[in-house]
Amino acid sequence: MAIELRVPTILRTYTGGAKAVSGDGVNLAEFIDNVNGTHPGLKERIVEGEPEELRRFVNVYVNDEDVRFTGGLKTEVKDGDVVVVLPAVAGG
């Protein structure tokens, strides 16, 4: 078991076209670092600044819940979780 990252179309240049890649970590920040180790460049498209924060127009969900409401990059993750990255879109 591992944690799965669902990669949006625009970021698949970093994953050799793969729609999903997997990695490990106890929280989202660690997980993104871990995935960036195998797919360099992914991280800086999702995270920015010091201290690190999610980029403004990027939404990240762990098991469908927006991590901005669950502790951001400190959100805990575990084996079997699904992390989805999506650009922010409008509705209405």
């Binding site: 949006p8 625009i10 970021l11 980029r55 403004r56 127009f57 650009p87 922010a88 879109v89």
Partner: peptide, 13 residues
């Protein structure tokens, strides 16, 4: 729907 746009071109109302 999410298109091929750059992630920095997203939209937050």
């Amino acid at each position: 729907v999410y298109g091929l746009r750059n992630l920095d071109e997203g939209f937050v109302p």
